[in-house]
Amino acid sequence: SKASIAGHPIHPMLVTIPIACFVGTLLTDIAYWRTAEMTWANFSAWLLTVGVIVGILAAIAGLTDFLGGRRIREQPTAWLHMAGNLVVLVLSFFNMLIHTRDAWTSVVPTGLILSA
């Protein structure tokens, strides 16, 4: 890995945070949809924001590894991994913008669909 700290690759360390945040967003969106309790919509907005910010950092570390290693670029799954994560990050960014609206319109139905 080109992006590492003390020999430990940064990308695998960071990706767990956006994964947890995006799954948490789906769960809190469902909770808001079922209860209309404003707290759940606030949780979703914060989880999305943290997930997108750390996701961008993870993407930078992953791109550094991808561009820095010829053997990595030769793997077809590496290209799928990069493209899939880029799609998720872009969708999550738009979901984050949607979640800035008023609670009900931020979650139902568009926010919930994007979270899923």
Score class of each variant (00 low, 15 high):
12 P>R: 02
88 V>P: 00
93 F>I: 09
93 F>V: 10
24 G>L: 01
41 A>E: 09
109 P>H: 10
89 L>S: 01
24 G>I: 02
51 G>F: 02
24 G>D: 04
20 A>F: 03
76 P>F: 02
114 L>G: 15
30 I>E: 12
17 I>E: 02
100 T>N: 13
12 P>Q: 00
71 R>Y: 10
23 V>R: 01
57 L>E: 12
57 L>Q: 11
7 G>A: 05
48 L>A: 13
114 L>Q: 14
96 M>W: 06
12 P>W: 03
73 R>M: 04
63 L>D: 10
66 F>L: 08
103 A>G: 10
112 L>A: 13
37 E>V: 08
25 T>K: 06
97 L>N: 12
21 C>D: 07
54 V>L: 08
107 V>R: 11
39 T>F: 05
76 P>Q: 04
16 T>R: 05
42 N>C: 02
32 Y>D: 10
28 T>H: 01
98 I>G: 15
34 R>W: 04
98 I>D: 15
73 R>A: 02
32 Y>G: 11
35 T>I: 07
54 V>T: 13
69 G>H: 11
74 E>W: 01
116 A>S: 14
58 A>V: 03
65 D>S: 04
52 V>K: 13
1 S>I: 01
51 G>N: 10
99 H>M: 08
28 T>R: 02
80 L>W: 02
18 P>C: 02
11 H>I: 03
34 R>T: 14
32 Y>S: 09
65 D>W: 00
77 T>V: 01
7 G>Y: 03
73 R>E: 06
56 I>G: 15
26 L>W: 08
12 P>E: 04
15 V>K: 01
2 K>I: 00
76 P>M: 05
107 V>Y: 03
105 T>I: 04
32 Y>I: 05
108 V>S: 15
35 T>H: 00
42 N>I: 03
80 L>E: 08
82 M>A: 06
